[in-house]
Amino acid sequence: MQKQAEDVVKLLKSKGLRVTPQRFSVYANLLTRYDHPTADQILSDLNRHGPTSSQATVYSALQALREVGLVREVLLEEGICRYDANVARHHHFRCRCCGTIQDIPWDTFEPLDLNRLPSSMQGESYEVTVYGVCDHCH
């Protein structure tokens, strides 16, 4: 556990971030999760044993982490922003029954040729979201 904490501190510093207890806690929380939580879910986790963070603090930490590329926003449903510490290229699967979100490896699908878009469009990146039913709900 101590080694993991040291690794998080080194990573935050390597990205030029000042290591605050809040940034550390938010990032460490995200590194242990694969459920693509909302800011409110992260806040709830951090305050499970008593208030330690505010909503504004969590949002501020998430913004700083996103700006340096340690966290990415995942928008899979209208009006709800989720966060992911897996910043490697990947796709997502969302279960239409339970709402679970799972990562799908990038090479699962054939690459799209963004040069085939109409000339009025200039594609920069893409991500596939597959909607269906997970094993648990099936």
Results as ranks from 00 to 15, higher is better:
Leu31Glu: 08
Tyr131Gln: 11
Asp7Ser: 09
Thr57Met: 15
His136Asn: 05
Thr129Pro: 00
Pro51Asn: 10
Pro118Lys: 02
Asp7Gln: 12
Ser14Val: 04
Trp106Ser: 00
Gly50Gln: 01
Thr32Glu: 13
Ile104Phe: 07
Arg66Val: 10
Cys95Met: 03
Arg96Ala: 08
Ala28Trp: 04
Pro105Gly: 10
Phe24Ser: 13
Val9Leu: 02
Val133Cys: 14
Met1Lys: 12
Cys81Glu: 15
Asn115Lys: 06
Gly16Arg: 02
Leu12Phe: 11
Ser53Arg: 03
Asn115Phe: 00
Arg96Asp: 06
Leu17Ile: 09
Asp84Asn: 07
Leu112His: 00
Asn86Ile: 12
Val87Ser: 07
His138Thr: 10
Glu127Trp: 00
Cys98Lys: 04
Asp84Tyr: 05
Val8Tyr: 07
Arg82Ser: 14
Thr52Met: 09
Lys10Pro: 01
His92Thr: 14
Ala88Asn: 13
Cys97Lys: 12
Val19Arg: 01
Leu112Pro: 00
Gln122His: 05
Ala64Arg: 07
Asp84Ser: 09
Ser25Val: 04
Ala28Thr: 07
Arg18Tyr: 08
Asp113Val: 04
Thr129Gly: 03
Gln22Ile: 14
Val128Tyr: 10
Ser14His: 06
Arg23Tyr: 05
Ala64Asn: 08
Ala28Ser: 13
Val26Leu: 09
Leu17Met: 09
Ile104Ala: 11
Trp106Glu: 02
Asp103Phe: 00
His136Ser: 08
Glu127Val: 06
His90Cys: 10
Gln102Ile: 07
Gly132Leu: 08
Tyr59Ser: 14
Tyr27Asp: 11
Gly16Tyr: 01
Gln4Leu: 15
His90Phe: 07
Asp103Ala: 09
Ala61Met: 13
Asp7Cys: 02
Leu75Thr: 03
Gly79Met: 05
Phe109His: 06
Leu43His: 01
Pro51Lys: 14
Pro37Ser: 13
Leu43Arg: 12
His90Glu: 08
Pro105Lys: 14
Cys81Pro: 03
Cys137Met: 05
Tyr59Trp: 14
Pro51Phe: 06
Gln122Phe: 01
Met121Leu: 11
Ser53Ala: 12
His91Ile: 05
Val74Met: 01
Glu6Gln: 11
His138Arg: 15
Thr38Arg: 07
Val74Gly: 02
Arg96Pro: 00
Ile80Asp: 05
Leu76Gly: 13
Arg18Leu: 13
Arg89Phe: 03
Arg96Leu: 11
Ser119Thr: 04
Ser120Phe: 04
Ser53Leu: 05
Gly50Pro: 01
Leu114Asp: 02
